[in-house]
Design a protein around this nucleic acid. Structure first.
Lengths: 254, 254
DNA sequence: ATCAAGAATGCTGCATACAGCGTGCAGGCT
DNA sequence: AGCCTGCACGCTGTATGCAGCATTCTTGAT
């Protein structure tokens, strides 16, 4: 932690465990550098987990208190997240959690499909055997979680695999862009994870992807990844419409 | 302009003409909504035009004074730009203008190629005739500027055409992502614009692109756009290395 | 009873004040 | 002479205060 200069003794967000009883298992490794990064990450998580509902306004005073920081660093974090497209800034009305339309999700998935296809080609052409082995290892573990019907671990491993494929492409820009869109859709996927979906279909997709990667068949990998994204739309399209229209304001601390 | 509540009477950035003697012709239409957007846009322009050199630290006090705003909104703008990847935030050292390596540029161009190819397919499949006509109109005007060897207008029309193609794809996410990467490379292209380059080659590429779009031949358009991006790398690769290592600090106001 | 107008409240947007951390320079010690 | 140490300056990071706009509740009139 750096640059601490607070007069108050509010709980430090970076060390703060679950501030709510909510299951906080889906977060990244807790080692965070700056307060800015911590706040950004925390608010991002709150959005993906629904603690901040789509369409709801973000009250700077309340959220700041809940996080133990003043309005200034919180506002800076909100600007950051606005640039990622997770929230919108309405003049004189502050920040609003972005509500994704069906069209938004479909468009984002189409772009993700293109990006992952491109990554698949690069991985087959340039990734090391060790990198491929790591991805396969994650895949095996994910299949175990599928066999046990452990949804949350499956979900996390799934995200991890896709991120690893992008990282193994060797194109940092590709991975960066993928990460932004992935974050934007994470909320939808998080909900979709609980839905009675076509889980088996997704698993079959992953088997095809892994097989193509193992053969280093770039075109096959690209096709399998693109098809997987297209199928994703079928799996989440019901969820998109179900997202509650508006929800309660953030946690009050009167 | 909204939400003005300043005690000082510093020049308003949104109405402010060239604060420096620098040629300020490459900016967008000057109608800006919020101060936040204005500051973000202004700093972005300063980066692409080299007023803020790659690798140089951004002094919040000086830059704020130069822009006529206090540190708070400037810092918020910097966080926003950091999310776009134009600058980096180093803890306790502030913001540093990001320096692009040759690898960065090559990677970004590869991704842009993929995105534009995808957009080309969509345009051929879904764009209206009117949209295509507008793009062709821009193309004609650009060719006129090429005939007259007017580099800067050519440059601006070129950027405009690519943006329009993305917009006409009907996929907002695609256009958004494209915009971010385009902004990141704008500095390089801006310099490359002045270099003794393969201008004729770029023009030929554009002719091929327009021909494919007119025929609504999606695959041909995709191929032409991807090839154009790949050729771009050849056109700017020399420029990347030439970018000065480090430059003077931002404008002082002692 | 319904609608309109005014006032009050609460929020955002910006500026400013303050507390640490990094850095550069000077002086002393080895 | 070179290196290390201590001090001072400057910068970032955070908190707080203030002004204006939006919204809402209340009150009065039709």
């Amino acid at each position: 932690m750096v640059g601490m200069a607070r007069g108050t003794e509010q709980p430090d967000i970076a060390a703060e465990p679950p501030p709510d009883g909510e299951a906080r298992g889906a977060t990244l490794p807790i080692v965070r550098q700056s307060l800015h990064e911590a706040v950004v990450g925390r608010v991002r998580d709150m959005i993906t987990e629904g603690e901040l509902a789509p369409g709801s306004r973000i009250h700077e005073g309340n959220l700041g208190r809940a996080l133990g920081v003043s309005r200034t660093p919180l506002r800076e974090a909100l600007k950051f997240l606005a640039s990622e497209g997770l929230i919108e800034l309405v003049p004189t009305r502050g920040a609003v959690v972005r509500r994704l339309t069906a069209q938004d999700v479909q468009d984002a998935l189409a772009v993700l499909g293109g990006l992952e296809a491109q990554a698949g080609r690069l991985v087959c052409a340039r990734a090391s055997d060790a990198e491929l082995a790591e991805i396969r290892c994650l895949h095996e573990r994910m299949m175990e979680r599928y066999a046990a019907r452990d949804r949350l671990p499956y979900f996390k491993l799934n995200q991890e695999i896709h991120s690893r494929i992008l990282a193994a492409s060797g194109n940092a820009v590709l991975a960066y862009v993928h990460g932004i869109l992935q974050a934007r859709l994470k909320r939808i996927r998080y909900i979709g994870n609980e839905a009675p979906d076509r889980w088996a279909g997704a698993v079959a997709d992953h088997e095809a992807i892994m097989a193509a990667l193992d053969r280093r068949d770039g075109e096959a990998a690209a096709a399998a990844l693109a098809a997987h994204m297209e199928a994703s739309w079928e799996r989440v399209r019901d969820v998109v419409a179900e997202e509650p229209a508006e929800a309660a304001a953030p946690a009050d601390t009167p």
